[in-house]
């Protein structure tokens, strides 16, 4: 992870909110204020939050599609090669290339490859596995998994400066605003 050039010791500034509606509103305002590198933390998925944050189209579905497509092709190719070319066998007088028989296996391989690419691309794009993250340095953040909602503007944002971002977040009426240290 590259650190911002201006405030190298900080990961960002974090605001704490009490309700999902508040964090949603805050996300919209943060986006309109011109911040791009920020993230929201919530104990449960909030419908519409990624739209409010302006998250661009997710990449995982494409990885899944490509993975599934490769799976379908390789499942089919393996069976055709094995059953029709490498060691053709006459089963009840059927064609060597009896493709209907190959569909269930190709289907399973599609699912397998799609599931693997879903998991691996999700981990890769999220930068996981990662045993520690700077947001855990904020004591209030412990409640992010129970009943509080957080928005963190990250230091990587080109518009970021510690004072400016803190003042901006305070204007959103949060419960608290804390700088997020990297150490």
């Amino acid at each position: 992870m590259a650190h911002g050039p201006i405030e190298p010791q900080y990961h960002g500034v974090m605001a704490e909110f009490e309700t999902p509606e508040q964090v949603m509103e805050a996300a919209e305002k943060t986006r309109s204020a011109g911040y791009k590198q920020f993230d929201c933390y919530s104990p449960f998925p909030i419908h519409g939050l990624s739209d409010a944050m302006g998250v661009e189209e997710a990449k995982v579905p494409w990885a899944v599609f490509i993975g599934g497509f490769i799976g379908a092709l390789s499942g089919m190719a393996l069976q055709i090669y094995v059953n029709s070319y490498d060691y053709p066998m006459n089963v009840g007088g059927r064609d060597d290339l009896s493709w209907p028989y190959f569909i269930p296996v190709a289907f399973e391989v599609t699912i397998l490859f799609a599931a693997f690419s879903a998991l691996l691309s999700m981990l890769g794009l999220n930068g996981l596995p990662r045993p520690h993250h700077p947001v855990f340095n904020v004591p209030e953040f412990a409640r992010a998994s129970t009943d509080r909602f957080f928005l963190c503007i990250e230091a990587q944002d080109p518009k970021f400066d510690l004072q400016g971002a803190s003042d901006f977040l305070k204007s959103l009426n949060p419960l608290s605003v804390s700088p997020v240290s990297n150490d």
Binding site: G92, R94, S98, P100, Y101, I103, P104
Partner: peptide, 12 residues
């Protein structure tokens, strides 16, 4: 639809 076809194709 495919299941019906596969079964009848296999049964022949």
């Amino acid at each position: 639809s495919f299941s019906q076809m596969l079964i009848q194709y296999a049964g022949n």
